[in-house]
Design a protein around this nucleic acid. Structure first.
Length: 103
DNA sequence: GGAGTGACCTTGG
DNA sequence: GCCAAGGCCACTC
């Protein structure tokens, strides 16, 4: 695939931006669609995401368990708040049902 | 150019 | 079903 490392982030951002409203995706799924070799890169890309990229719904990306990655407590709460505001319901254990909300 | 780091995934107990 | 450990690759310093 392209030798430009920057395209990796760009592809990730493009895919994340393509997630429909009220749907969620996983790091692994994003990584697979973006032809990334490791899901960690997706997490790293989102970690590098800045507030200036307000158009990117980073909160719609969760781990394979359907749960929010506890990068920081504040971000986790914000992410959950945003997902709930989009109509996404969490299970009793704080997980998202991918059979319903999966991309 | 090498070492450290990270918002993960998979496997085994 | 849950918890712990290893391995993966790209980015930053």
């Amino acid at each position: 695939m392209p030798a430009k490392p920057f395209d990796t982030f760009k592809r990730i951002f493009t895919l994340v931006s393509a997630i429909p409203y009220g749907r969620v995706s996983t790091y692994g799924q994003i990584a697979d669609m973006a032809s990334i070799y490791s899901a960690r890169i997706v997490g790293f890309a989102l970690a590098s995401l800045k507030e200036s990229h307000g158009d990117i719904p980073w909160h719609r990306v969760v781990n394979i368990n359907g749960e929010i990655s506890p990068r920081s407590l504040d971000q986790m709460l914000i992410q959950k708040e945003l997902l709930v505001s989009e109509g996404i319901k969490f299970s009793k254990k704080g997980r998202i049902d991918f059979s319903i909300y999966g991309w």
